[in-house]
């Protein structure tokens, strides 16, 4: 797996490189701003870019805009956005157009290195990695449709939105995979999600909340 990192804090940038190297992930470029990120991506065609939201020059949402630009030009490149705070609005920007190969995580999550690296690998192969806080915010925002879900279904969709597989959800909730399957189907029904043969129905379940807004 080949990765480009865009992070303006030298300390954290070097730390990330060190971390990924320790897990035998090749960091092909580590840059400090959005423009360099686009150049590096064009040059190296990485599998994944890791990008900080707040970067020069305005320190607001450069990272989000850079991520959208990368996705537009290189749709197969996975994108993980790191942020000091999670903002529902940025998540909507990021997820409303594409629902696969995207991650949005709190910077704090890099402390749990194994989970973090697993999330990176997931996104690189087209999966999703949403911070639990992002998911909580998105679900809260969609308060009305969620009223129709049971407590257990809420647990399931929360884990689903984080990008977990049925098996992982079953393990986390200590229920059988078939029970998870049942809950998932129930969620689809309650959210009026028509059956479709895409690979990302699970993410669409979460995104349907957004589009219903």
């Amino acid at each position: 797996m080949r990765v480009v990192i865009a992070e303006d804090s030298v300390l954290l940038r070097e730390g990330l490189v060190q971390l990924l190297n320790a897990f035998e992930i090749a960091v092909v470029a580590a840059v400090a701003d959005a423009d360099s990120l686009l150049l590096a991506t064009a040059e190296h065609q990485p599998d994944l870019v890791i990008v900080d939201v707040r970067m020069p020059p305005t320190y607001t949402d450069e990272g989000i805009r850079a991520a959208l630009a990368v996705r537009q030009r290189w749709p197969r490149t996975g994108i993980v956005v790191l942020s000091q705070y999670v903002e529902e609005r940025y998540a909507v920007d990021l997820l409303s157009t594409w629902s696969s190969g995207v991650g949005y995580l709190l910077k704090d999550r890099v402390a749990d290195v194994a989970d973090f690296v697993a999330a990176l690998r997931r996104v690189a192969v087209g999966g999703t990695a949403l911070d639990p806080e992002v998911v909580a915010q998105l679900l809260q925002r969609r308060a009305n449709p969620i009223d129709r879900l049971t407590g257990r279904e809420l647990d399931v969709i929360q884990l689903m939105a984080e990008g977990r597989s049925n098996t992982a959800i079953a393990t986390a909730l200590r229920i059988s995979p078939s029970a998870v399957e049942k809950h998932v189907n129930s969620i689809f029904t309650k959210l009026d999600l028509p059956p479709a043969d895409t690979d990302h129905r699970r993410v669409l379940a979460v995104l349907s909340y957004l589009h219903a807004h």
Binding site: S9, L11, L12, E14, G15, L16, Q18, L19, A22, Q84, K107, D108, V110, A111, D112, V113
Partner: peptide
């Protein structure tokens, strides 16, 4: 914040 995140990452590693 950056310093502490970096430190937490190193401890995690």
């Amino acid at each position: 914040q950056q310093r502490l995140v970096s430190l937490a990452m190193k401890l995690g590693l």
